[in-house]
């Protein structure tokens, strides 16, 4: 039976979905601005981050209101608490995208042409992981969500491995060191984005199964 307060939960869901789409798009646009060294595109990513920030505040307000007025239990309670946590993760993903865009703007000013193939290697799976985790959250797919931590581990390994390559390139082309340092930070941002995708996946499992797998053997196993 649909009750009068159902629309409030639906609205909360809609805001999360919108925020998720914007966060994934922000990362995609930030990466494209890097590949194209497109300063205008990078600026737009930074401007659009405000929308994510506002949505996070709106979701917090809607969730707090729902908790106060509707006293949710069971699945409703999990939806509201997951909305609060997921919105924070999505806002952080937006911040990382904005940080990547900020470094692209610096690289544009430096006018240095550098090889970004290492960023492509980590960027594509990181973007794929966000899209997967968001898809799992929206679809309520705990089974697929359980595979996300493994993808995050692969991203961590790519990030670690690329660090040595950047050091070698800085030694070989010292005049491009500032640009390569920006790429190291961009790689770190993408690695962090993988962490946020994992957190969203863990929240999805809680939403669907009611089991909090953080800091448990199940989390460790899911990374193997």
């Amino acid at each position: 039976m649909a009750r009068f307060f159902q629309s409030e939960l639906d609205e909360l869901r809609t805001k999360i979905v919108r925020m998720a789409e914007l966060a994934a798009t922000a990362v995609e646009n930030a990466l494209r601005s890097l590949y194209d060294l497109d300063a205008d595109a990078a600026r737009r990513v930074r401007e659009d981050d405000d929308i994510l920030d506002k949505l996070e505040v709106e979701i917090d307000a809607a969730a707090n209101r729902y908790i106060s007025l509707r006293a949710p239990v069971a699945g409703d309670m999990r939806l509201v608490t997951v909305a609060l946590k997921a919105s924070h993760e999505l806002e952080r993903i937006g911040d990382e995208a904005s940080s990547i865009a900020k470094r692209v703007l610096r690289m544009c000013r430096q006018d240095a042409v550098v090889d970004v193939s290492e960023i492509r290697r980590i960027g594509e799976p990181a973007l794929g992981l966000i899209r997967d985790s968001i898809d799992c959250l929206v679809q309520g797919d705990a089974e697929r969500a359980a595979a996300i931590p493994r993808g995050d581990k692969e991203i961590d390994e790519i990030h670690r491995a690329s660090y040595g390559d950047y050091i070698a390139r800085i030694s070989a082309e010292p005049e491009k060191a500032p640009a390569y340092i920006e790429l190291i930070f961009i790689s770190k941002s993408l690695e962090r984005i993988g962490d946020h995708a994992t957190n969203i996946a863990v929240e999805t499992i809680y939403l669907v199964e009611g089991e909090d797998i953080r800091h448990t053997d199940r989390t460790k196993r899911s990374k193997q």
């Binding site: 039976m1 949710p72 069971a74 409703d76």
Partner: peptide
């Protein structure tokens, strides 16, 4: 019962959607 009920009827009842 109130955080993670196993039966959908229980969930519907405790969350005020029964009937």
């Amino acid at each position: 019962i109130f955080m993670n009920p196993k039966n959908p009827q229980t969930e519907a009842y405790v969350s005020g959607r029964f009937g």
